[in-house]
Design a protein around this nucleic acid. Sequence first.
RNA 1: GGGGGCGUAGCUCAGUUGGUUAGAGUGACGGCCUGUCACGCCGUAGGUCGCGGGUUCGAGCCCCGUCGCUCCCGCCA
Length: 601
Amino acid sequence: MHAYRTHTCGELRKKDVGIRARLSGWVNRRRDHGGLLFIDLRDHYGITQCVVEPDSPAFAEVDKARSEWVLTLTGKVVARSADTINEDMPTGEVEIHIEEVEVQGVAQELPLPVFGDLDYPEDTRLKYRFLDLRRERLHRNITLRSKVISSIRRRMIEQGFTEFQTPILTASSPEGARDFLVPSRIHPGKFYALPQAPQQFKQLIMVAGFDRYFQIAPCFRDEDARADRSPGEFYQLDLEMSFVTQDDVFAAVEPVLHGVFEEFAEGRKVSPAPFPRIPYDESMLKYGVDKPDLRNPIVITDISGVFAREDVAFKAFKEKTVRAVPAPGAAVQPRSFFDKMSDWARNEMGAPGLGYIVFEDEGGTLTGKGPIAKFLPPAALYEMAQKAGVVAGDALFFAADAKKDRAAALAGQARIRLGRELGLIKEGEFRFCWIVDFPMYEWNEDEKKIDFSHNPFSMPQFKRDLFLALDPANRDAILGIKAYQYDIVCNGVELSSGAIRNHDPDVMLKAFEIAGYPREETEQKFAGMLNAFRYGAPPHGGTAPGIDRIVMLIAGVDNLREVTMFPMNQQAQDLMMNAPGEASLKQLRELHIRVVKPEKA
RNA sequence: GGGGGCGUAGCUCAGUUGGUUAGAGUGACGGCCUGUCACGCCGUAGGUCGCGGGUUCGAGCCCCGUCGCUCCCGCCA
């Protein structure tokens, strides 16, 4: 008989009755009936009830065992009597009558109980991650993550993609985030950077003549954490293809994402391919964000024109961008509902307020109620209702600002909030969309200069010779340029961004020049890639959906730590391994590093 | 860097307007119990109320500072 087990703890069934079996696992639960002692033994696969009676030679030893001790139990598999069958357990029709026991590992009193489904403080969970991971929910999530990744990998390979590894110790990659640096021992004063993404490598893979590359790629960015953004490191499904248009990339990615979500949907609805394509400008207008949650039925409208009418006396909104956010059925809400929205806009959004009108039906005519309504004659009210698509019983909230972007953003946040507060968001659905035609550049008001608005390696949607001839001072023309740049969004979560890349060295130098980088600097900073592009570069493009966020959506959790095996805390510390830690003087000397601690304020 | 929330037994939490010896559940320990599956019953131990200072006759509670965690803003295209 095997030293540790003949079966797993999730394996034994009625058909096994009569055999002698050996199980190893953790004591999930101990129930002492004096003359009779039950041990629920748990391993990765499941739980099996084991029983020992006082006349068994093993009784005294089993009696000592406590929660989370590791035991090897040997005994006969016995059918439970009809009245003791546990239908909630897969192994509930049988139990083991313990004849032998071996203690493999004892456990101290637990700082974090494994049994039960209570919530525990994050620092306790992180410090004792190995205990937290034993618990059913986390154990299931991490297993799910693995299944999702193998499903992705299988689907990518089926579509003709090939997986390659790219370096972890590399040069700084220009994704815009802060780099993690690794000092070089051999080259004093020089540093490797951990890749923020394998961006340049995957483009070089295309230049190298490979096609359809993918990788479940670790990415490193030294930026502060959020619930859906781990500090330091995360994984992307990184992919790149040659000789493709934007539509080809979409057509390659859609079946993978749709397939994976469908595979683990468990009854939830998944957008069929092709996913809707929404231009960036349209998304900013209708949803006020570039990552709309399409489960939310609210659509924002621009009604600046209504407040500009001569017969509208409400001066505060004149000459401003006014966006209307419908609140379907909100007429029945108490006054406090509207006050709370306004408080929220003031306190959290830094807005002067959030005006509103409640639409009602009075004898067949549409009327408006609320502080602003009296400034609008019936004709203006009617025009507004028409434009915003509201009827009697609905309300309209107004986001107004002299700056278009700020009005859009406030409206977008109000839309999200109203959707939640009014219970309008349909659960049990995965609604995908592509956001396309991102602007290539944006105006940096602080530094009074033109910046790349997203990925600097995207191909501008502009005729080559006209682009090369652009005057960098022609701000209007430049800010109007769109890029072949796209995001994929699911339920308001940005899963990835991607682009058709700029593979033309002249266009690339020009693109950087417009953003204020002299040619020499671009040449030097991206020497590897620019150089490669001068020896025959294919048109190529790709994208990189975030693995962690995909698993979060599928697992239905709102924190990355629920789907990450060994996460760090918000301060980017590993409380279990005590990382980051100090380096010894010897290590520092070898690396030619001296530590200068910040002065305490 | 900034803002909100939290910090009381090993663990999860309660603790009224500032007022006697800070409680419960769970876990631990001891006892009883032969069919439980969150077993049940009885008992015992377990507390620097995050830390420091202040107000007060009196502080877990109020004030100031500080530390830790968390969520958000900045940042991350």
